[in-house]
Every structure is written in C-alpha cells, then in structure tokens.
C-alpha cells in the first residue's frame, strides 16, 4: 500500500460508496469511504436512499473503478441484482463490486454469482477493505 501514497492524483483508484434502499444506517458506509480516502483512493459517497438507477448513473458519471454498496435493511437480494443490471446496461461490466452491512452468511453464494467480489460484515477491519481494493483493481 505504501506505493499508493506516492502515486499522483490522476492515477488514484476511483471508488463509489453507495447506500441503496431506504435505510439510513450510514455509519459503516461513511467509515469505509473515509478509510479508502485515507488509503489514497478518490472516493465519491452518494448519501442515503439511492435507487439502482441513481447508483449506476453516479458510477458512470464519476467513471469509477469500484462500487461498494452498504445496506442494513435486508433488501439486498431484491436491490443488488437491479443495481448490477443497471451498471451492465451502461456498459460498466468491469467495475469491481463489493458490499457490506447486515448480510446473512447464507446469501454469500447468491451475491458472488451476481458479481460481488467481497462481502464485508460487522467487525471488519477497514484496512482489509483498502487492501482488497488495491489488490483487485489493476487499472490504477
């Protein structure tokens, strides 16, 4: 990770942290956004109550390498496929996807099939999230 501290701003990995659905629990999303920023990424945080279209549109406009979704309401299995669909319909097929929040273990396979490369649950060290992003984004 030390190499990233030296990279110039135009080479920064661009990350969108988004809150789909209606839940207002944004403590985790904001901590992750800030940890990634401290880790050298360019982070865009959407705020709460984002529809799948809004998230995909923000990902496109901001030209991000990574999309991280945070949800604690239990609506992930309904909302995440829509978000993936909206991203693909905008040609964003190679964006790295990860998610976090209250997500039961038994949903892991379904989310991996949708294209999520990692699920970060309560108790995660944010350094692991930063490392995950750097290890999996090759474009930077």
């Amino acid at each position: 990770m030390s190499a990233t501290q030296e990279s110039s701003s135009d080479q920064k990995i661009r990350v969108l942290i988004a809150k789909p659905g209606l839940d207002g629990h944004d403590r985790g999303a904001k901590i992750v956004a800030r940890a990634l920023r401290d880790g050298g990424c360019e982070v865009i945080y959407t705020g709460i109550r984002q529809t799948p279209q809004m998230i995909a549109e923000a990902a496109l406009q901001e030209d991000v390498d990574v999309v991280g979704l945070s949800i604690l309401s239990g609506a992930h299995l309904e909302l995440f496929p829509r978000i993936v669909e909206e991203l693909r319909s905008r040609g964003l097929d190679d964006v790295l996807l990860f998610c976090g929040g209250i997500i039961p273990e038994e949903d892991t396979d379904a989310l991996e099939e949708m294209g999520f490369s990692a699920i970060f649950r309560p108790g995660t060290n944010t350094r692991d999230i930063v490392s995950f992003v750097y290890e999996n984004v090759t474009a930077a």
């Binding site: 239990g74 609506a75 909302l79």
Partner: peptide, 19 residues
C-alpha cells in the same frame, strides 16, 4: 411506512416488512 410510501410504491421495492 416510516418514509411515507405504500407497499406497492416503486421506492418500497425489497423493503416491505423487513425492519
């Protein structure tokens, strides 16, 4: 219910009865 959408509102997708 907390945000003023009926259960059949598009904004309610996936959230009905969850929390």
């Amino acid at each position: 219910t907390q945000i003023g959408y009926d259960s059949d509102d598009p904004m309610a997708m996936g959230e009905v009865g969850k929390v």
